[in-house]
Amino acid sequence: MITFGKMEPEINYTWRPGVYGIILKENENLVALIETDDGRYFLPGGGMEGSESHVECLVREGIEEMGKLLEIGEWIVKAQRYFYSEKDGTYYLVEGHFYFARIAGNTGEPLEADHNLKWIEAGEAVKRLFHEHQSWAVQKALTMMENNG
């Protein structure tokens, strides 16, 4: 598995598995991203809670971040990233599981008011994503689409 970021010596990292959906508008070459109020961009998804399955996690995150019901599709890739979260004051080793996903319906307004769904051109999305492992996963997804196209 590929790992991004640098492990700092003598730092205790909190392992945080997460699930992320790569949602493409294929004919328009657009990727769904979540923009937070601080101007950062992330893939829809997030950390797993308790004994959640990958499907349960992505469905919950879709409701929270987008107000959308997500359907999980084909698995794409897994990657890790070391980083420090200023928001949490915690050092994390995030393990991302990335899947193709699609929006299957609306559930109402997003539960997280500071999260906004944006459709961004694929190349630009890769550049804007805050986490390197998410950018890499989008590139892998686009390559898979090209190879299957």
Rank of each mutant, 00 (worst) to 15 (best):
R102Q: 15
R102E: 14
L58V: 08
H131W: 14
N27L: 11
V138Q: 01
V126P: 02
T107F: 00
I76M: 02
L58C: 05
A104Y: 05
Y91S: 15
A122N: 06
I63F: 09
E71F: 06
E74Y: 08
F130L: 13
E35S: 06
N147V: 11
E124R: 04
V138S: 01
V94E: 15
L58K: 04
R102H: 12
M144L: 15
Q139A: 10
G21K: 05
S85E: 01
H131P: 04
V59D: 04
T143W: 07
T143H: 05
N106Q: 10
E64A: 03
L69Q: 06
F83E: 03
H131I: 12
G89W: 07
P17I: 09
V55K: 14
T143V: 11
L117W: 00
E10S: 04
L129Q: 05
A79P: 01
L30P: 03
T36C: 07
P110W: 08
N148G: 04
V55A: 09
Q80Y: 09
Y41K: 04
E86C: 05
G45N: 10
G18I: 12
E71L: 11
I63Q: 10
V55Y: 13
E26P: 05
Y82I: 01
M1W: 09
G67D: 04
H115P: 01
L93N: 02
K6P: 02
D114K: 07
E8H: 09
L24C: 13
Y84L: 09
D88S: 13
L117R: 00
G73S: 11
A104E: 08
N116K: 15
Q134W: 09
G47T: 12
L142R: 06
V31W: 00
S53R: 09
L58E: 05
W136L: 03
G149H: 12
M144Y: 06
G149L: 15
F42I: 08
E26K: 15
K78S: 15
V55Q: 12
V19G: 01
E61P: 02
Y82R: 02
N148L: 14
